[in-house]
């Protein structure tokens, strides 16, 4: 039977002014997550005072939970260095993953600006009664957004 082997993961950099662009390709999975983190650490060391780290995700074929954990660590590091993280050209699957896990807003929120931090911590902006998953019976409940 065919199993799907991990596609080779690749990184290419380009730097301009206060921005470093990293193109990602292949599978960002438990076999390759550490590579990304090491690369980002190096970028942040070499380019002290970096303003923006742009990860170009167009070439990513699959991101698993370890890959997402690596992205979350990248966000911590860029946040700590005062740089903004951008996830550019996200694939449909990546968007779906970030959407389901509720991490999109956190990952792409600008770094180190107090009001932005607060925004990252806010719940989804859905107010009012949400639809009930109920068929025939009269709706009685509401969704409960939390902060």
């Amino acid at each position: 039977m065919t199993s799907t082997p991990s596609a080779p993961f690749g990184l290419t950099y380009s730097a301009a002014q206060d921005t470093v662009r990293v193109e990602l390709s292949g599978d960002l999975d438990h076999l390759h997550a550490d590579l990304l983190l090491a690369a980002v650490d190096e970028v942040l060391t070499v380019h002290a005072g970096l303003g923006h780290l742009r990860l170009d995700c167009a070439g990513l074929s699959a991101v698993d939970s370890s890959g997402l954990a690596a992205l979350l660590m990248v966000r911590r590091r860029t946040g700590g260095a005062g740089a903004d993280l951008h996830l550019d050209a996200r694939t449909v699957q990546l968007d779906r993953l970030l959407e389901v896990t509720g991490t999109l807003e956190y990952l792409t929120a600008p770094a180190a600006r107090p009001q932005a931090r607060r925004r990252a911590g806010r719940g989804p902006a859905r107010g009012g009664p949400a639809d009930e998953n109920q068929s025939a019976a009269p709706p009685s409940g509401v969704a409960e957004p939390h902060v």
């Binding site: 979350l72 509720g102 956190y106 911590g121 989804p124 859905r126 639809d131 009930e132 019976a137 409940g141």
Partner: peptide, 25 residues
């Protein structure tokens, strides 16, 4: 699909959640 969503736990300083109420006949 139940209308609930929220953030994963264990990685972010704060989490958000939205609870759905559903009645099963």
């Amino acid at each position: 699909e139940a209308r609930t969503k929220g953030t994963l736990v264990g990685a972010l300083p704060e989490i958000t959640t939205q609870t759905a109420r559903v009645t099963l006949a």
